[in-house]
Design a protein around this nucleic acid. Structure first.
Lengths: 144, 144
DNA sequence: ATAATATAGTTGGGTATGCAACGAATTTTG
DNA sequence: CAAAATTCGTTGCATACCCAACTATATTAT
């Protein structure tokens, strides 16, 4: 059978991004910030490196997303006392409505993506995609 | 269960793109052209609109990828006689080694992505991802 | 302790991509 | 048939992203 995993992943990713962009426009952020804002919300004080690792983003990408969130006043950073290179990130009050909106949009997108799936298929999809993304991180990267 | 389909799709897509970029560097193309070159190879005379639809790419994205392939001499276009707006696309001899390379890389990526999968899981992954990408095209887009 | 290495984060540059506005050709409508 | 609407493709602009080079701080090795 012809496998076309990447083609499907690409379509899912692009369409989801476009949906996020439309849904978050009113908050002045795009698809590129949602992941980071929620992660900071869920892990107060998280440093940039951890964000990069968790999303498998380049450090530069993470820096720029974080800068945008900071400019908008949605997060703030504190320098770590012990390691002065490290910035600990926190969500600001102002961002709470945005966080809630992102959760809702994420939920919506994920349920639209699994339209017509049985409960079993949906669970299986989660497991398979997780495994595949782990493989991507392990076997498709240059280093490691 | 918490669904995170988009996160996984995003990682798979980004890592695959990076792999394509590294693997195709010697041919002066990047991840953004592989889909189009193969499709033109498999469907001689295909117009730009069909490429856009099949990959669910924006028309502008398709135009730019096609322009790059043309500049490199990998494809040529012919104006349709009946409908003068339409460009029919064809692969040039020069591109054959590139086409073969892309097939090999695609195969490699897809097999790396399914590392550790049973035959059943692999087949299931294809079915589920296909379905999900169709849902993305149907339910996540603005129009239609 | 000092030199070599490693790590956190930033920056500059390039590619991929979507979106909106456009021009040209075609089709549909009244 | 002429005007309006649609369709094919292009272009300009903006965002997301990776990569490589860099600074500053921290850690390890000699």
């Amino acid at each position: 059978m012809e496998k076309r995993f990447t083609r499907y992943a690409s379509i899912i990713d692009r369409q989801s991004k476009s949906y996020y962009d439309r849904a978050l426009k009113e908050y002045k952020i795009g698809c590129g910030q949602q992941f980071f804002l929620l992660w900071i919300y869920e892990s107060p004080g998280v440093p940039l490196t951890v964000l990069s690792e968790q999303g498998r983003f380049d450090k530069g990408t993470t820096t720029k997303a974080v800068q945008k969130l900071k400019q908008l006043g949605y997060i703030r950073s504190e320098q770590d006392e012990k390691d002065k290179r490290m910035q600990k990130l926190f969500v600001e009050e102002k961002a709470i409505p945005v966080v809630e909106k992102i959760y809702a949009v994420r939920e919506k997108i994920n349920s639209l993506l699994s339209t017509g799936f049985t409960k079993e298929e949906e669970a299986l999809a989660g497991i398979i995609l997780k495994k595949m993304s782990e493989n991507a991180g392990t076997y498709l990267t240059e280093n490691k």
